[in-house]
Amino acid sequence: NQASVVANQLIPINTALTLVMMRSEVVTPVGIPADDIPRLVSMQVNRAVPLGTTLMPDMVKGYP
């Protein structure tokens, strides 16, 4: 099973992602692959992302 990117904390709308905000976890449904975490750094979320939420491609501005 492939690990996905999961919010490690509440991420407010328009926040630029940092490594501490994300963790990898095997979840269903599958979200953004954990391998993409380095690419996500400094990209902004377009909505508030609660703790434990799987990051989906449509939540991150400019992804992929």
Rank of each mutant, 00 (worst) to 15 (best):
L17G: 02
E25S: 08
A16M: 12
G52A: 07
M22F: 15
P12W: 05
A16S: 12
L17C: 03
N46A: 14
A3H: 10
L55F: 09
I32G: 01
N8V: 12
T18Q: 10
L10D: 13
V45L: 09
Q9E: 11
Q2N: 12
V27P: 01
P50T: 10
V30Q: 13
P33T: 13
V26H: 08
L55R: 00
S4V: 02
S24Y: 09
N1L: 15
D35S: 12
R39C: 14
V45A: 05
I11M: 04
I11Y: 01
L17Q: 00
P64E: 14
G62S: 09
M43W: 07
R23I: 12
T15C: 05
A7L: 03
T53Y: 11
G62K: 11
N14W: 07
M59R: 02
P57M: 06
V26G: 04
N46Q: 14
G31M: 02
P64L: 15
T15G: 05
T54M: 03
A16F: 13
Q2M: 14
M43V: 06
R39D: 05
P38V: 11
L17K: 00
V41H: 04
V26A: 12
A16W: 12
T54P: 09
L40C: 03
S42Y: 08
Q44H: 12
P64Q: 15
R23S: 08
A16K: 09
V60P: 02
V26Q: 08
K61A: 13
I13E: 11
Q44Y: 11
Q9M: 14
M59H: 06
P64V: 15
P33Y: 09
A16N: 08
L55N: 00
L55D: 02
L10C: 15
S4K: 01
R39N: 11
V27Y: 02
P38S: 10
T53W: 08
A34P: 05
M43L: 13
M59Y: 08
I11C: 03
T18M: 11
M21W: 00
K61H: 15
N1W: 08
T15Q: 09
R47N: 07
V41E: 05
N46F: 06
K61Q: 13
V5I: 13
T54K: 03
L19K: 09
Q2T: 14
G31P: 00
T54Y: 00
P57I: 06
R23P: 03
P64M: 13
P50W: 07
G62A: 13
A16E: 07
T15E: 10
P12S: 05
T53A: 14
V26T: 12
N14C: 06
G62L: 11
G62M: 06
V5N: 01
I13A: 09
Q44N: 10
M43G: 03
V49H: 01
A34V: 08
D58S: 12
P38W: 09
L55M: 12
P29C: 05
P29I: 06
M56T: 14
A48H: 14
G31D: 01
T15H: 07
T28D: 15
S24V: 12
K61N: 11
M59P: 01
N14L: 08
R23M: 05
T15Y: 06
V5E: 01
D35R: 04
M59Q: 05
Q44V: 13
L40K: 00
V27H: 03
I37Q: 04
D36A: 14
P38T: 12
V6C: 04
T18W: 03
A7V: 11
K61M: 12
T54F: 02
A16D: 06
Q44R: 08
L51Q: 15
M21H: 09
I32W: 03
M22L: 14
A34C: 06
P33K: 07
D58V: 08
M21A: 04
R47L: 10
T53P: 00
M22A: 02
T54S: 04
P57H: 15
D35W: 07
D36V: 10
R39W: 09
V20D: 10
M59G: 03
V26D: 15
P64W: 04
N8E: 06
D36R: 10
P50L: 15
T28V: 13
E25M: 07
A7T: 13
V6P: 01
N46S: 15
M21E: 03
V6W: 00
G62T: 07
P33N: 15
D36P: 00
L19H: 09
L51F: 11
T28M: 10
T15A: 07
P12F: 05
N1K: 05
L55I: 10
V41D: 03
S4N: 01
S4D: 00
M56E: 05
M43E: 04
D35Q: 08
P57E: 08
P38D: 11
N8Y: 04
L55E: 01
I11H: 01
E25C: 05
L10F: 11
A3P: 08
T54D: 02
P57T: 08
P57G: 09
T53V: 14
L55P: 00
A16R: 05
Y63E: 04
A3F: 10
V26W: 08
G52T: 02
Q9A: 11
L10W: 08
V6S: 02
V20T: 11
I37W: 03
A7Q: 00
P64R: 12
V26P: 07
A3D: 15
A48W: 06
N8K: 09
T15R: 06
V30T: 11
M59K: 01
D36T: 08
V27R: 07
I32H: 01
L51H: 11
L10R: 08
S24C: 07
S42P: 01
A7H: 01
